[in-house]
Amino acid sequence: MSLQQLGIEFVEAFQNADYTKTSTILPKIKIELARAGLMVPTNASSKQDLLAARQVLELGVLACIHNRDEDELNRLVAQIRPFYSKELGLPRSENENKLNGLYLLLLVSKNEIAEFHTELETLENAENDEYLAYPIRLERWLMEGSYDKVWKAITQKSQFPSPEFAILAESLVYTVRSEISVCVASAYESLPLSNARHLLFFSTNQEIIDFVHEQPGWELHDGRISFTKAAAAADGDYMDDGSAINGENSTTERLIANTLGYAQQIETII
């Protein structure tokens, strides 16, 4: 099949939301694109070809999100990047910000904040764009700890700029919940079950009970969760009573080593 036919078929499948079909066509298209030398865009190819290739890849990214195929998504994002470089002189794609926004959201949901900021630095005027502002807001709230705002943003349909964001945000639910659970464990000594359910955004008691059992060091009795053990376990790495003696020993040793070091250095100076 020729590239053009494949392209048309692909777009059709995408518009009909037939995502299994898109995932079978996409590899074929990629092979054809590589054959036509359009996989890596250069100024040598005609603008129309480049635009067509870009459109197919853009739709491919969206289809991947619907298929929840994260590896393929990462690959496609890397492949589409060169198509957006200014040197090509292509007209700006209306999907560019949307895709960038989706990629940023993916990074946030995987908790790759350093990578997130590196990406953000390449974008201009990010905050004024509907698609880009969404992940940026999420990241900010996550960092300052306003988890209730994050929760609202990722669970209420009206908040998403496009349906693809909702799919990526699903994984964020787990990220947020685990973040909260760590915070809760260090901030409270004990907590009533109903309050905990509220804090962790569970809808039924059974869910929170299951969740508590999964957490190491959380204990449930009389309708209260106590974190004393969890706190001790967390602290134990550093200064448990038993290891305190060890710690003292090591500080003494370090002190001696340092002092001997100074003496040696002073001797060489003299």
Binding site: G145, S146, D148, K149, I180, C183, V184, S186, A187
Partner: peptide
């Protein structure tokens, strides 16, 4: 509610 989460995070 926000304040509670923010404080909890600060503690952590």
């Amino acid at each position: 509610e926000s304040a509670e989460y923010v404080v909890a995070k600060a503690i952590r």
